[in-house]
Design a protein around this nucleic acid. Structure first.
Lengths: 135, 135
DNA sequence: CTGTGTGCAAACACTTTGCAGGTGT
DNA sequence: ACACCTGCAAAGTGTTTGCACACAG
């Protein structure tokens, strides 16, 4: 019963697809791609529906895009978006072996001093390497 | 005469396409995408040839991939690859207005302490905002 | 001469758009 | 009841592959 509540909190209608996608986000502690969701979702939804689900989740601030080194888009839950007003400036780690990207919530992106004239809006730090499980 | 020399230095045969692509990298101080090269190259080469040119440049260490927030791949010259053995851990800045991604060579990525168990291989810091010209 | 670069056609992968019909509130 | 979510088909965009020919060293 938590899923529909969360959806409602973000002004999203509660539907089967949305509930199951959200469930996946809760069950996995790494960033999810459209392809991953298609493969791992219990019911089968249209590829397009999943794309649209992710897009509306993002628009409402429930998830955020996570940078990836290859071209595919991944999303992760905004842990504290509701409280901290879109704070997701933590480090992301991508394992070269298993391909999973995890949010390292405990590590903030350090302050960076840019030359004059740059107006900073968003910062993304992606670290690549091998994760605990794959070593 | 500098272009063929550079190519030779990286064990790349000197051809018209390669020379002109390399020229573009020298003329522009921002990261280049395949599309940009196609549009701005003087002679006209096949889209595929440009892809392959970029790929071989990267393999030989002449250019490196630059992260981008949307899916398209961009490359930039490895300024010191020859001397510092693949050192391109500087900050990248992408302007939301003009879309250009520039390497901020002067700013290194600060040290980050990850939790135990992560083996770090590569680090990418992408800062988004508005650049000097677009403010 | 030989390995490799190039062009063309086609395939592939990921994502978006349009529209008709179904569903949540 | 109405807005909006969903599925299907199709198109769009970025990238890769296969093959025959051309070219640099």
């Amino acid at each position: 019963m938590q899923l529909p509540n969360t959806l409602r909190k973000f002004q999203l209608k509660s539907t089967p697809c949305r509930t199951e996608v959200l469930q996946l986000f809760f069950d996995n502690d790494h960033a999810l791609s459209n392809a991953f969701i298609e493969k791992n979702i219990s019911s089968s939804f249209d590829r397009v529906t999943v794309y649209r689900t992710l897009k509306s989740f993002e628009e409402k601030g429930l998830i955020h895009k996570v940078l990836d080194d290859n071209g595919i888009t991944k999303y992760a839950l905004c842990q504290d978006c509701s409280t901290h007003h879109h704070h997701h400036e933590h480090v992301h780690f991508k394992c070269e072996t298993c391909g999973q990207t995890t949010c390292i919530e405990s590590v903030d992106i350090p302050e960076v001093k840019l030359p004059k004239g740059y107006k900073v809006k968003e910062r993304n730090l992606l670290i690549q390497g091998v994760c605990e499980q794959c070593i």
